[in-house]
Simulated assay, not measured.
Amino acid sequence: MMKKSMEEVWLRGGVDGYPGLLQPVVHAILQAQEEIHDLMNCFPDNLLWEKPAGVANVAFHLQHIAGVLNRMSTYAKSEPLTEVQFDFLKHEGVFNEGITTNKLLNDLDCTISGFLKVVSNIDVNTLTHLRTVGRAKLPSTVGGLLFHAAEHMQRHYGQLLVTVRILKYEKPD
């Protein structure tokens, strides 16, 4: 993960190794990654599965962000999802005693690295190329999938932020 500075990622200039047209995707992913790490610093493992007011648990958001990045990069490469990916999707947010905050963050970082590697290898001339999503083969594009991954990560970071703050307020450390 990149060292955090005072400026948001998009104000630090271009990130080497990524096409200019895809810098907004990279900036959004890296910004969310930094903010997630700040938010989750010292988050207690025993609160990962809590659902305050019935909202999704913290573990779900961290797993779901990783899952979406993984699935969108697979679709962008015009590949089908694997059984491992379907199994991951089925278990997002499902209680698992062996999961810790650190494990979730490490898994997320690995997935972000993999996603960004895919982005770095994208030919910008393919951004408007048709790609299909899911078993229903719904239409999208390479660029649409990459943008959706970044947007979806930002959306779930926002939900994660609220859930973590509620849990820390209700059950202070």
Rank of each mutant, 00 (worst) to 15 (best):
D45Y: 08
P19D: 13
S113D: 13
G67N: 14
F115P: 05
I29M: 08
T126A: 05
L161W: 08
H156I: 09
F115I: 03
K117G: 11
N125C: 10
H61S: 09
I65R: 06
M40S: 04
F60N: 03
A53I: 07
G134L: 07
S140N: 11
T111S: 12
L116S: 07
L105I: 14
G13W: 10
D87W: 07
M153N: 13
F88L: 11
G20P: 06
T126D: 10
A56W: 00
R12G: 06
G20D: 15
K3F: 06
L145M: 02
V84Y: 03
K4L: 06
D16V: 12
Q23P: 06
K168P: 03
G93M: 01
Y157H: 15
G143R: 07
L21Y: 00
G13D: 10
M153V: 12
L161D: 12
A59G: 03
V142D: 05
L160H: 02
N121E: 15
C110I: 05
M6L: 15
F60I: 02
H37G: 00
S73Y: 00
E34V: 06
L11I: 01
L105Q: 06
A28D: 02
P172C: 04
I166G: 01
V58C: 01
T100V: 10
L48A: 03
I36E: 05
G144E: 02
K77N: 13
V25Y: 05
Y75M: 07
G20K: 13
T126L: 07
N125M: 13
